[in-house]
Design a protein around this nucleic acid. Sequence first.
DNA 1: GTAGGGTTAG
Length: 698
Amino acid sequence: MAPTLSTALDLHFPIPQTHTKRRIFFTRRKRTIYCNSTKPPQNPPFTKTPSLSEQLRPLSTTTLPDKDQARLLSKPKSTWVNPTKPKRSVISLQRQTRSPYAHNPKVGELKLFAKKLSDCSEDAFLTVLDEIPLEPTLENALLILNSLKPWQKTHLFFTWLKTKNLFPMETIFYNVTMKSLRFGRQFELIEELANEMVSNEIPLDNITYSTIITCAKRCNLFDKAVEWFERMYRTGLMPDEVTYSAILDVYAKLGKVEEVVSLYERGVASGWRPDPIAFSVLAKMYGEAGDYDGIRYVLEEMKSLGVRPNLVVYNTLLEAMGKAGKPGLARSLFQELLDSGLTPNEKTLTSLAKIYGKARWAKDALELWEEMKSKKWPMDFILYNTLLTMCADIGLVEEAEHLFMDMKQSRHCRPDSWSYTAMLKIYGSGGNVSKAVEIFEEMSEVGVELNVMGATCLIQCLGKAGRIDELVRVFSVSVQQGIKPDDRLCGCLLSVVSRCENKADVDKVLACLQQANPRLVAFVNSIADEEYCLDNVKEEFKGIISDTKDDARRPFCNCLIDICRNKNLHERAHDLLYLGTLYGLYPGLHNKTANEWCMDVRSLSVGAAQTALEEWMGTLAKTVNREEALPELFSAQTGTGTHKFSQGLSNSFASHLKKLAAPFRQSEEKAGCFVATREDLVPWLRSRIPSPAVSVSV
DNA sequence: GTAGGGTTAG
């Protein structure tokens, strides 16, 4: 049976037992990892290999001393040992050197022939090969092998060389061939060659292993990557920093943070000074986990080891800051990048534009765009589309139109479905229906396909404008084009239903929804049914919600509440708010401190917010009735709508308060915040209690 | 695409 990594490590490289500051820091990190690992890695690739930490645990927790300690114990007279001196190494500090080859004077001729081989059909390969202009000596053959593409040709040539048996095949020939195969993601062939090397006793070196490992990684064969890393240790070959960071990246992509940190720490304890590539791997991993502490750890490590980030590291860190939800820190990091004299590239600017857009930081977004133009920083297609999306997120209509025109006039960055979707979003959420429809028509004219997101934007704005027949047409065209309505689109249709003013329109929209989500339509009907009872709908509600994507669950519930309220079925609206709360759709709705009780309705629809207000007042009335303690201050937060197009909750909430004659006043310091003092609220609550009843719903 | 490692879009 193949030994595991732990045994391989045990044989050759006992785990360093460092007790330095670094070790303490790692312990701190480990703790943070446990606390912060709320986000599991997305679609973690399956691996049958036990995790490295599982394999390491028996070693790290065992009381067995390592060899150095054993030596110390047997020689009590050795009185001093340098505690900072690295213990046995897990990494070779010397990067594998490439063997120098003499310049081949026939390089031009050979490359020309290689091109001929590359360009010919596979059937003609052997015929063309017969016309080889020079003796296929080792040097000549290597040069040709190195210049061939695609991988099929490299493989054919390599096989031919072996059958000719002109000279013994050296490691470098395998390495060159494997690299070409990696471009074609031919892991099976690479593994075949590797096994052939083993049987023919051709040594595998660090270049061989790193090529195998990275190919496995690119093919998502992570267990294979780990397997070959273990095999390397078993043969007694030390990884150099290239192989080491390749395997770090494998564990990082598996989301195995602890293993990565453990390997990293052990490498450093062996005297390794990680380079920017290793830090980029760490930064990406923490970014994917949305782990801000991890990102800080990377920054601190770089600082303490005196490693200056390069552009790739900055880009990865920026992306990571965005994923960790730290736009301000991303902005400072970007400034640091500029101060260090580096010039941002397309990836840098894409990250930043995405961050500012998501954060709705209009001022910074505009400044960024101005700076991009004035400094003539590089632009590419992805950046164009990201900037457009950023404009859509923030509501920068003119800027978006400008960019869109630029794209239309450019040669290489013609608007595609992303660009058109962003434009639909801009006009759609801005309520500019005619422009949105224009974009839709233009798409079919220029042959850009609508996608589900664009369809959703368009349907949403047509719905808001009450243009139901056009909505139905867009829906039909979308479905005909093969768009599969997703939960967001269903939520959008449901919200249109909640806004429809007449039954004919409701039926038209429900007919669309019926095609996408018949279960939801049945539920809408059941909550309006005469036979309605909470117990009956509860299970079905639970079923629907659990079958719905996370980000569409609360919108579903919001719309259902709105539908009930529009039908004057207020009690049922309260039931649905209760069910939504029960299934965790409204976390953080109520917040209490000693002095203030606060209700945060920022993620609720108008009807849901009204329902929540009534529910809250009802609960407070009961509290008053029971003469229980109340805080001095009450507040309700509607927000002002971070999006300039999405204001309205605050206004409707205000008018509902007025209708109830509730003593809440718009806060002067904080927009979108309504406050009431206990002094004012309690008498009002009392006045509304037709004792002993407690309901205050209107 | 210099025998091997890291970064951009709902």
